[in-house]
């Protein structure tokens, strides 16, 4: 059970935070189809940051002396860096969509193509192969939270809570959840959040009340870029052992689907992300999944092909969208470039 929850969280949290990235862009009125591209870019820059800092040796003493608090700081620093790079990358979309009033779907597609191309081009030249990894050690030895850090011995049991939510987890997961909660509250209870949302519903009315629609949309896309870039790195760190190869397995698109399924509302999105995280987790580790701890792997025993499990998240997304389409309510002005002249 512990593994199931841990693995589900591993997939759920990046999905959730990137879906929230989509919410911020779309609620401000810009379709951010580029989530996948920004994730790829964020994953790459984050891993590159870790790699370069390791080579510079800033955190080597901390690693050698077992100062795990400093290493957690390193991890958060890398997340921050990936987020900022994602934000810069998303400016390309913001510029095309807001200033030049370009087709947002095409602009997003362009970024989705640009990110892996640039990443692979640079990775190939820097690392002479198609994947960039940490300069030294792996994600588990540097960043993973372990029993020993909380004063437990190798064979001691931390209890259900500890074994599930502390042992063998990453602090990145909890930072993401915290950011998710804070940003959701900001979106719904602050002046800024209200203004941002109004720009996605009726920008003309918002403008007439003195809100700068362009500025709001820029902030929406930039927050979106930050979250997606950070989410990309978190995905690379927790699910890909801190490596980047110009690919995040379609998570950006899946996040987009989660966002639509969650009806552009944070609470529903968290629920949606949980469902897809669960199915992704089943697909990834169904053969070693022992749900009630009786030593039987019944997901293998029922003899369904692994390919079916791999397909399930996508099929279920499609089905859920079909069944929830009636209640679906997208921000009214999303995808429409704001033109002052049309007021």
């Amino acid at each position: 059970m512990s593994t199931l929850i841990q693995q589900t969280l591993l997939y759920m949290v990046p999905l959730m935070i990137v879906a929230l990235a989509g919410v911020f862009a779309e609620r401000s009125g810009v379709i951010n189809l580029a989530l996948e591209g920004i994730m790829i870019f964020g994953a790459f820059t984050g891993v590159l940051f870790v790699n370069l800092v390791q080579q510079a040796g800033w955190f080597t003493p901390a690693k050698e002396s077992g100062n795990w608090v400093a290493l957690q700081g390193f991890e958060i620093l890398a997340m921050l860096f990936a987020g900022i790079m994602g934000m810069l990358f998303s400016l390309l979309l913001a510029f095309a969509a807001i200033n030049l009033k370009a087709d947002q779907t095409i602009g997003g597609t362009a970024l989705n193509m640009l990110a892996p191309a640039i990443v692979l081009f640079i990775v190939r030249i820097v690392a002479n192969q198609n994947v960039i990894a940490m300069a030294d050690g792996d994600a588990a030895s540097w960043f993973m939270l372990k029993k020993s850090m909380f004063g437990y011995g190798r064979n001691e049991d931390m209890g259900f809570f500890g074994m599930t939510f502390l042992n063998k987890t990453y602090i990145a997961t909890y930072v993401c959840i915290l950011i998710y909660i804070i940003l959701s509250i900001i979106l719904y209870t602050t002046k800024f959040g209200l203004r941002l949302r109004s720009c996605g519903e009726n920008p003309q009315a918002a403008d007439s009340l003195g809100i700068n629609v362009y500025k709001m949309r820029y902030s929406g896309v930039m927050i979106s870029g930050f979250l997606a870039g950070m989410g990309g790195f978190v995905f690379a760190l927790t699910a890909a052992n801190c490596t980047a190869n110009g690919d995040v397995a379609g998570f950006g698109f899946l996040a987009l689907a989660v966002m639509i399924f969650g009806n552009w509302k944070p609470l529903n999105i968290a629920g949606g992300a949980f469902i897809f995280g669960l199915f992704k987790c089943i697909a990834a580790c169904y053969s070693t999944l022992d749900i009630n701890g009786d030593g039987k792997y019944w997901l293998v025993d029922i003899g369904i092909s692994v390919h079916v499990y791999r397909m399930l998240p996508y099929i279920i997304t499609l089905l859920v969208l079909v069944f929830t389409s009636k209640q679906s309510r997208a921000p009214k002005a999303e995808g429409i470039p704001y033109d002052k002249g049309q007021r």
Partner: peptide, 24 residues
């Protein structure tokens, strides 16, 4: 050369990006 084939993907992506505001 010492470069690699991904440059053509970069060029294609830039062209798509430009096509997004071909109207402009």
């Amino acid at each position: 050369t010492a470069y690699n084939e991904y440059i053509s993907d970069v060029i294609i992506a830039i062209i798509v990006y430009m096509a997004a505001f071909s109207l402009v």
